[in-house]
Design a protein around this nucleic acid. Structure first.
Lengths: 232, 232
DNA sequence: GATCGGTTGTGCACGCGTTCACAAAGCCGT
DNA sequence: ACGGCTTTGTGAACGCGTGCACAACCGATC
C-alpha cells in the first residue's frame, strides 16, 4: 500500500487557485499569523469564503471547526498536493528577449523551479551567458533533459518555431510544457500544455475598453453593474 | 442613434477565444485562403466546431450557410468587436528584467499596442534606453497617460510595489491593467485587472506532473483518460 | 425552378463550478 | 458538564459554458 491514498480528482478551477492561497498563506506565515479562518483567507484572495472552504476540502479535512486553519500545516498540505515538496528542473527553449528575461528572473529558482538549461538554434546566441546560465545548442536538449530529469519545458521561441520546439521537448521526454509563443501547440495525450499569450491578454483588455467607450457614448446610466473587481 | 447598436454581452469564455480565431484567420488570409467553414476554423483552433459557430454568432450572422465565412470580413468584424480598429497606447511600470523584455519584444507595437512609455522609481534605471524607449521617472506617469491618452497599463514591478503601481495607474486615468506581479491587485469598479502569474502556471503544471507520478507509482492501467490535449 | 449536398445558427440537455444555507463539530466560560 | 458562540464541511440550487442535433438556408446543378 502506498503511503498516500490517491485522492479524488481536484477540479481545474481549484488547482488554479491553490497556488494563490499558498502564496498568501506564506505571506501570513512570515507576518507571524499562525491561524486563519476561511473568511480571512477569502478576503486576502478576493474570493468567496465558501469557495475557499470547498477548495481546501478537496485536500482533506485540515481545518478545525470554530477555529480555522493552522497556516503552517495548510501550507504543507497544499505544497504536497501541488508537488512542491521537491524541486522541478525546467528547460527554456529560445534565448531571445523573453527567454533571457525568464532566465534572468530569479523567481523561478527561488520558487522551486531551477533552470537546468536554456537552448537556442542561433549559433550567435549559443555559449553566451544569460542570467547566469550558458546558452546551449538545441541538439543538447535530450541529453540535458535525461541527465537532470527535467519534466517541464518552457517555449520562448518565435511562433513559427514553437511546434517544433514542443515536438523536441516531447521526444526528449518532457511531459509538461508552458508555451509563451502566440500559437497553438499540440502534444500527444499524457503531455500537459499551457499557453500564455500576452497579445491575447491585451486584446481581452481592449475589448473591455472598447465596451466602456461604447457604453459611455450611448449616454445611459449603468444599470446595476455589480460585482467586485479583483484578480490573482 | 449610434452607428453600431450596443450588442448583447459576449461571454468571457468567448472573448478569450476571439483573439485566437483572429490570429488564425490572419494566418489563413496570408496563405491566400479567402473562405473558411466553422469546421476548418475549429480544427485550426483545436476546439469544437459548434463552439466556433456559437462564438461567432455573438458578433452577428456573418456566415453563409452552405459556404462558410469570408475570412477578410470576419477578421474585420472580430477586430471591430475587440476594439482593434485603432491602436491602444500602453505604459509599462517597472524596467526590471520583465519590463525590459516586454518593451524589447516588438510584438506589442506590431499588434496595435504601441508603448507610450516605460517607468521606474530607480534613478539608476531612469534615462537608460530599453527596447528603443527611454525609461522615465514614475512621477511623469500621469502626464504621459494624459498626453497620449493611454488606457492600458502593464505592471512589471516586484510584488511589493504592484499595488502602489496599480493605484498610480488608476489615479492617472488608466482603466485596464495587466499585472505580471505575483500578487493580488485590487482596483475600483470600472477598472479591469488581469493577472498573469508565471509561478502559478508552473505550479499548475507541476500538480499535473505530480499526479502522473502518483498514478504511475500505483501500478494501474489508466481508466479512460479521454479528451484531446491542446491549447491556445 | 426544383432537387440536392453542404453549412450555418440555435434550442436543448448536460456537466462543471459557484454560492447559499445549515447541520456537525470544536472551543470557552461558567 | 453544559450551553453558547464560532467556524468548518457539504448537500442542494443555481448559472454559465459546452456539445449535440437539427431545422433553416444557400449555392450549384440539372
Amino acid at each position: 500500500m502506498s503511503p498516500h491514498r490517491t485522492r479524488r480528482r481536484i477540479p481545474d478551477a481549484t488547482v488554479a487557485r491553490l497556488p494563490i492561497y499558498l502564496q498568501l498563506l506564506g505571506d501570513q506565515l512570515e507576518a507571524g499569523v499562525s491561524n486563519l479562518s476561511s473568511e480571512d483567507l477569502a478576503t486576502l484572495a478576493g474570493v468567496n469564503a465558501a469557495k475557499v472552504r470547498k477548495d481546501l476540502s478537496y485536500l482533506g479535512s485540515y481545518g478545525t471547526r470554530g477555529v480555522g486553519y493552522e497556516v503552517q500545516y495548510l501550507v504543507y498540505q497544499i505544497r504536497r498536493e501541488l508537488g512542491l515538496d521537491h524541486d522541478w528542473n525546467v528547460v527554456i527553449l529560445g534565448a531571445g528577449n523573453l527567454g533571457q528575461a525568464l532566465s534572468g528572473y530569479g523567481g523561478f529558482t527561488e520558487r522551486g523551479y531551477p533552470i537546468a538549461g536554456i537552448f537556442d538554434v542561433d549559433p550567435d546566441k549559443v555559449d553566451t551567458v544569460v542570467g547566469g546560465v550558458r546558452v546551449r545548442p538545441l541538439d543538447d536538449l535530450a541529453q540535458v533533459v535525461a541527465a537532470r530529469s527535467v519534466s517541464i519545458g518552457v517555449i520562448a521561441t518565435p511562433p513559427a518555431a514553437a511546434q517544433d520546439a514542443a515536438d523536441r521537448l516531447v521526444r526528449s521526454g518532457v511531459t509538461s510544457i508552458l508555451n509563451f509563443a502566440p500559437t497553438l501547440v499540440t502534444a500527444p495525450l499524457g503531455v500537459t500544455v499551457r499557453t500564455v499569450d500576452m497579445a491575447v491578454e491585451m486584446q481581452i483588455l481592449s475589448y473591455h475598453e472598447q465596451r466602456r467607450a461604447l457604453a459611455a457614448s450611448s449616454l445611459r446610466s449603468v444599470p446595476g453593474d455589480a460585482g467586485r473587481n479583483q484578480t490573482a
